[in-house]
Every structure is written in structure tokens, then in C-alpha cells.
Amino acid sequence: MTEKLGLMICGHGSRNKGAVKQFARLAEGLRKRFPQWPVEYGYLEFANPVIHDGLNKLHEQGCTHVLAVPGMLFAAGHAKNDIPSVLNTYQAQHPDMKITYGRELAVDVRMVHAAGARIQEALDAAASDVPRHETLLMVVGRGASDPDANSNVAKITRLLWEGMGFGWAETCYSGVTFPLVTPGLEHAAKLGYKRIIVFPYFLFTGVLVQRIYTAADGVAERYPNIEFIKAGYLNDHPQVIDTMADRVQEILQGANVMNCQMCKYREQVLGFEAEVGLAQESHHHHVEGLGAEAECKLCEEFCTGACEAKVKAAAHHHHDHSHDHSHDGGHDHSHDAKDHSHDHSGDHGHHHHPYPHADHPLGPKSMETGIKK
């Protein structure tokens, strides 16, 4: 029988309508790159269609081999665990359709070019002309309990710093790990630079990006002699779509290799030794399909941050402040969905291995309780 290929783009999902629309535009960009195949997309939670729905559409169109790629910047819990868990469950129910899983966007020269373009757009729109060597770049990552994913943000920072010639550069995170945006910017403001560029290394808009900008405004008020510039996030930059298209080609070429050398579930990563070999569990099954029910009703496409109180309350349920449920277990080097082994027995509640630095004075828990170093 002739194989019929299909492409599935897997996202996390957002309560923000703007973020959902932006992800859909990214998917449309992939449809244009692969017009010979059916292309569908879906989310883990908070938005429709869910991944299961997209796979159903591909199945109905007669696809026998689905190439599934995560619309994720780095490989933390969602890319390593939650998406493969959904794919494995679906393939077990549809043995006539093979699903092969691709890797995340990762550290890639095209992603660095896309990030550089967003930063340059902010510089071009600035009211004053400050030399690069008198400018500090602050790259803000999402933040995860996976040190490998966090370290990749720092690598992006260095590539942008050296590539664009800024006087200094720092990295901070929107949640889960440390330093958070406010303490990170407070530290940066003391280094003596005339301008600070705040760049969210995020794919799409939403409450996390708005939280970053709000934090930047707050620090800027305390340091009126420093010019603060807020750069835009990546969005559907052509280089981002190029990178995702390349991830699809990697699957077909057999070069689909996820970075497992520094994975805390496979190696004795400093400070995370207790997590080697932990079994994988996914907890997204109970929220899959939350679309209109979960959608934020407090703002339209532009997130105003009005839902911050609700997000903080939900953080106690999600164990962090960014909806990044990075409680993933070990993952296999092979990339057929069936080869990412997951335990689907037992409770799929929110079980997170304790983050070893949860009480760090620059981290989420300490910031919330008012602990100061």
C-alpha cells in the first residue's frame, strides 16, 4: 500500500485568543511549505482544536504516516513528555496510522536571526540613539524545571549578545526558575548601561509576555535615567517557519535527533541527580478539550494582564506561574511516537518532582511570599 503522509503541528494552547490565532497563522505558514500533504494542528489544553482532533482529521483523509512536530522553542516537559503521551495514546487506538515525532525548534541559527530581527525592529523604533556598547540586552525565557531547557535560553542570549555587539547581556525567566524578570532587571539596572532592551524569547503573545512587559515598566519607573525598550516576541517570523519546516524534513531524512546529552532524566545533571530515570506521566488528559470554557473573557486578542490574579491562584494548582508543567520523565532517543514510552496507568493528576531550588530568593515562590535576599 502506498504511504500517505500528513503533518501535525502540536502546540500547548493558551487562554488568550491572540496567542491561539498566532499559532494558527504559524500552522498556515507550514501548509504553504508543504502543499502536497494534509496539514493540521492542535493543542494540549486551553484551546481547540486539541491534538486528538487534528489527528482525527488526518486519519479521515487517509494518512498512513503522520509527521508530528512540536511548536515549542525548547524541549522541557511539554515537548519531552506531554505531547508524546497524547501521540502514543492516539496511535495505540489507531494502529493503521504511524506517527513519527520530530524535535523542538531548539538552538538554531535561523531562530537567532529571527530573534535578532525583532530586537533590531525595537532599536529602529527607539526615540534616541544609544550606542550598542552602552546598551544591555535582557533575554527573557519562559522558564522550566528542566535545566537543559533553561540553559538553551542562556545560549541564545550569548549568540545575540556577541552577534549584535551589545555592551552586556543577561538572561532571566518568566516563571518556574530563577532569576525572575523583576530581580533580573533590578540587577541589570545596576550595571551602569544607558539602555536596556527587554526581549521576550517567546513564540506568541499571552499573559506571560504581558507579565514581562509589566515587570519592565515597573523597574523602569525606579530607574528613570535608563531607557527601557520592549522588543517584540518571535511570532510567525519567516525564519521561525523555516526552522519548523526543517524539523519536518529531519524526520524524513532520519536526522531527527533530540538533545539527550544534558537531559536530567538520563544523566546526572548537577543538582538534579534524584530525577534520573523517573517514569514519565502526563496530566494533560483531564484538561484536553478546554476551549471556550478556558478562554480568557477579560480581554480580547491583546492581553492586558487583567487575569494575573487568576493566574496566580491557578499557580498553586499548577505548581508554577507559567502553565509550564515540566514534570516530565525519561525519554527515549528514538522518535517514533510509539518509542517514547509513557506510563498511562494510575493517577494523571498534577504530580511534579520537587524543584530543588523552589525557595531560591530570586524565584517564584520567594517572590510571591516576599522573601528578600
Rank of each mutant, 00 (worst) to 15 (best):
A292S: 14
K190H: 08
K32A: 15
E275M: 06
G291F: 03
S85P: 03
S345L: 04
V276L: 06
L137H: 12
T171F: 11
I251P: 00
E227I: 08
F199A: 01
A216I: 07
G167H: 08
L136W: 05
L159D: 10
M1A: 12
V130D: 06
L55T: 01
D108F: 13
H285R: 13
H283L: 07
L270P: 09
P224G: 12
P224N: 15
E162M: 02
C263T: 06
G330I: 04
G329E: 06
L73F: 04
V240C: 07
A188K: 07
R211F: 09
V209M: 02
V209Y: 00
H353N: 08
A154H: 09
L191M: 14
V112Y: 11
D53K: 13
L252M: 10
G363A: 12
F166W: 15
R247M: 01
Y201L: 10
H317M: 05
I119K: 05
E28N: 15
K338P: 01
L44S: 00
Q261R: 13
G192C: 10
P131Q: 12
K32C: 06
H321V: 09
L270Q: 12
A314P: 02
A122H: 13
H327K: 04
R15W: 04
G11R: 05
K98F: 01
P200Y: 02
G271F: 06
V219E: 03
T205G: 03
A68S: 14
G116K: 11
D336G: 12
H133M: 04
A306T: 09
S145T: 12
E250M: 13
E288V: 01
G305P: 01
H340Q: 12
K194Q: 15
P95Y: 15
H237P: 06
I212S: 02
L67A: 10
F302T: 15
E281S: 13
T89N: 13
P361Q: 08
K372L: 14
S322C: 15
S174M: 10
C10Y: 01
Y101A: 04
G206Y: 01
G184H: 02
D242T: 11
H133T: 14
V219S: 00
E162S: 11
L180F: 03
L123N: 03
H350C: 05
A169P: 05
S145N: 07
